[in-house]
Design a protein around this nucleic acid. Structure first.
Length: 605
RNA sequence: GCCGUUGUAGCUCAGUGGUAGAGCACUUCCUUGGUAAGGAAGAGGUCAUGGGUUCAAUCCCCAUCAACGGCUCCA
């Protein structure tokens, strides 16, 4: 791709023009409505009503905090007995009574000593702790609805009736103040909307999201599995999942070749010593699998590809004429993740990054960085992703080089006019980074691509190149993975398309359904002809009626089903049943259909 | 890792203190069919694993493992 702001901007424009699911997601996940009062006030008040109900039914529960969230609200309680699903039903009933009673919500200021006295007397230790954490100059306020009064900074509707419709969804553990050294509280999640209709629409959205869940589709469509006998977080790519992955990889490879990347391959297991040099052992050990002892030597599974690529760089004397040097690898890495965090394809213990490391002179940094951002946009565009966000993560203790790196990132983003959010202190141990996040079916955000500037590892490994001035200089590194990991990218991709991959990506592009076994040979022959053109084709050889076969392949979300009966076999044609198109088409010659499909594949749709 | 829930056939799920069921999928036979489920028969389970209570455990208790919903952590 030829670089430049103009192409970047037009690309971006194209990216912004969304696809159905993105729009549907926005519509059906009404995080904002035009309704008055605003949703977050409704939900904040709903959280108070939940606390009211809990205090009514389970007076021993201690109050903590209960905010509105993007999709609803929660309230955390400290209580010995766990809340059961039955408890949730009872609490929801009680909340509905409170809503029906149309109780006014009133707020008033309270002095600090009075507040402490009050909550101490009520035996609400968490509230007292909260008060101590609030800055002295900030006024404190109490909000009362019905018989329930809570410490709260406000943002409520005027009465419980305005809450409209509520639903309690789940109960989960949550640490007090999010710190795992603190006691575990019980968090009750719920959501609220001005009207029952909007609530129903949201619940319907959640159901639709469940149908899109990549773990469910992965099994139904035969894409991948996770095997108990092998361990959690380790992915088995089945033939159909592998087919999709290879197409994605092929797409990425094409971009790499165009941009002058050099493919490399590095070992999965190396001496632990390498990670002493790189600093991984010092900074990343809690995410690494433990050492393997062989003949008294300690080896480690690789958690990142960078040290390997650095060794390749360092294996020869380098000149400024060699730079930038761009090494790419679909590199499989293994990271230890705590068991409770594993999640389908999106949080795993072994994954393959579309990784690359760019070694460049400092003055080349800006240009190289911009290219990677542009490339990231190309990737997102090709897969119809529009629902992404950029995050800039900075290092906690910055050196001077971090300032340079940060500036490079900001300049690149500004150049493409990309908005981004800032995550102070969230950077990698070797430098600041730019992350690309995408949402899954229910709006959970996952980090996919990442571009990181690194002055540290070149230093640690003593990397250098001979400059035009005859002196040695230190190169700068950019680490970049644009899809991030093939696993996570695939997970988000499955949900994005609800398993109905466009023809160019579909693991089975064409299913051929003979009407009776008399046409089986013709079906096989047609399949051979299409496979000869590199299409992915299956013949339905089952002893079933046509309706059954159609249903089967529709459920498999195959883009094309070709029906062949007596007439088609005689004419050398196929009757095309295209996914998403209801009306029947007149049969066409096999070659005509092949051209149509070839066109779609070429256009990646 | 922590809190909670769950674990019965390949999948989705019923069920009982006296060693188990359905639908789909699978196999075979009949059927040879025109766009979302034709009929019949059959096979398939150490009821997650290991202990304990009991005359007897898939069911009750404990532990472990795994999955799920979160929290924490985080590429």
């Amino acid at each position: 791709m030829k670089g430049g702001a103009a192409s970047g901007a037009s690309l971006l424009l194209a990216v912004i023009q969304g696809r159905p699911w993105n729009e549907a997601k926005r519509k059906r996940m009404p995080t904002e409505t035009t309704a008055h009062p605003p949703l977050n006030a409704i939900r904040h008040t709903a959280a108070h009503l939940l606390a009211h109900a809990v205090k009514d039914l389970y007076p021993d529960a201690k109050l903590t905090i209960g905010p509105a969230t993007e999709q609803g609200f929660y309230y955390d309680f400290d209580r010995k007995e766990p809340f059961t699903p039955d408890d949730l039903t009872r609490l929801e009933e009680r909340m509905k009574e409170l809503i029906a009673a149309d109780l006014p919500m009133t707020g008033r200021e309270i002095s600090r000593p009075d507040a402490i006295t009050r909550f101490t007397a009520e035996d609400e230790p968490y509230k007292v702790e909260l008060i101590h954490g609030i800055p002295q100059d900030e006024p404190l306020s109490l909000y009362t609805i019905g018989s329930f009064t809570d410490l709260c900074r406000g943002g409520h509707v005027h009465s419980s009736a305005e809450v409209g419709a509520v639903k309690l969804l789940s109960v989960a553990g949550a640490y007090w103040r999010g710190d795992e050294h603190n006691p575990m509280l019980q968090r009750i999640y719920g959501t609220a909307f001005p009207t029952q209709g909007e609530l129903d629409a949201y619940l319907q959205f959640l159901e639709e999201a469940q149908r899109r869940d990549h773990r469910k589709l992965g099994r139904e469509l035969g894409l991948f599995s996770i095997e108990e006998d092998a361990g959690g977080g380790l992915i088995f790519w089945h033939p159909k999942g592998t087919a999709v992955r290879q197409i994605v990889e092929q797409f990425i490879r094409e971009g790499l070749v165009e941009r002058g990347y050099l493919p490399v391959i590095t070992p999965h297991v190396v001496h632990e010593h390498l990670y002493e040099i790189s600093g991984h052992l010092e900074n990343f050990a809690q995410n690494m699998f433990g050492p393997l002892e062989v003949e008294g030597q300690r080896f480690r599974l690789k958690p990142m590809n960078c040290p390997g690529h650095i060794l390749i760089y360092r294996s020869e004397a380098r000149s400024y004429r060699d730079l930038p040097l761009r090494y790419s690898e679909f590199g499989t890495v293994y990271r230890f993740e705590r068991s409770g965090t594993l999640h389908g394809l999106t949080r795993v213990r072994g994954f393959t990054q579309d990784d690359a490391h760019l070694f460049c002179a400092p003055e080349q940094l800006q240009g190289e960085f911009e290219q990677t951002v542009e490339e990231a946009l190309r990737l997102l565009h090709a897969f119809n992703f529009t629902d992404f966000q950029f995050f800039l993560s900075t290092r906690e203790q910055r050196g001077g080089t971090d300032e340079i790196a940060e500036a490079a990132i900001r300049n690149a983003l500004d150049r493409f006019g990309m908005p981004y959010e800032l995550d102070e202190g969230g950077g990698a141990f070797y430098g600041p980074k730019l992350d690309i996040n995408l949402s899954d079916a229910i709006g959970r955000k996952w980090q996919l691509g990442t571009v990181q500037v690194d002055f540290v590892l070149p230093e640690r490994f003593g990397l250098k190149y001979r400059g035009a001035d005859g002196e040695d200089h230190r190169p700068v590194m950019i680490h970049r993975a644009l899809a991030g990991s093939m696993e996570r990218f695939f997970g988000v991709l499955i949900e994005h398309f609800a398993g109905a991959f466009p023809a160019w990506l579909a693991p089975v592009q064409v299913a051929i359904a003979p009407i009776s076994e008399h046409q089986l040979e013709y079906a096989r022959q047609t399949a051979r002809a299409l496979r000869a053109r590199n299409f992915r084709v299956e013949v339905d050889e089952s002893n079933e009626k046509l309706g059954y076969k159609i249903r089967h392949w529709k459920l498999q979300k195959v883009p094309y089903i070709l029906v062949v009966g007596k007439q088609e076999a005689a004419d050398g044609t196929v009757a095309v049943n295209e996914r998403g198109i209801e009306e029947r088409r007149a049969p066409v010659a096999v070659e005509t259909f092949a051209e149509e499909l070839a066109q779609r594949v070429a256009e990646r749709r």
